[in-house]
Amino acid sequence: MSTVNVTVTVNGVERSAEVEPRTLLVYFLRDHLRLTGTHIGCDTSNCGACTVMLDGKIIKSCTLFAVQANGKSVKTVEGLAENGKLHPIQEGFKEEHGLQCGFCTPGMMLSALELLQKNPHPSEDEIRWGISGNLCRCTGYQNIVKAIQYAADKMAKGEA
């Protein structure tokens, strides 16, 4: 089977691998680059566990071929913390108990990141719409909403 060389800037670092064109981005990240923070839930474009950012926009990495990301940049959950310091969104999930099993959490946090970049002061309703592509089977969403509100407040203070 013929392969193609794919080079993607992942969390600021250029990474390459030889993959088949049919390799989905999520397998490229998990199997080829061993970045297993991004999860595979449904594998049918429904649950959002595989959410990552591609050139600054959230996408479902189970529904994009790795070769489509060639030359582009990807942010995964591993790229949220900086210099050993948790991102305010991560801190929010920790402080507000925004996770139980944690399976949905990496995708949830990337969706929260896009939401807060577009809308730094979202209402509860806007938060719920912002994470409507991410399913959580544990929390009932209440504490996830609180975690994102925590992050919004913290990030607003950082701005000031």
């Binding site: 969706s111 896009e114 912002g130 592509g133």
Partner: peptide, 9 residues
């Protein structure tokens, strides 16, 4: 239509 991730693509 779908959700934010799908609508981005």
């Amino acid at each position: 239509i779908a959700d934010p991730q799908v609508r981005n693509r």
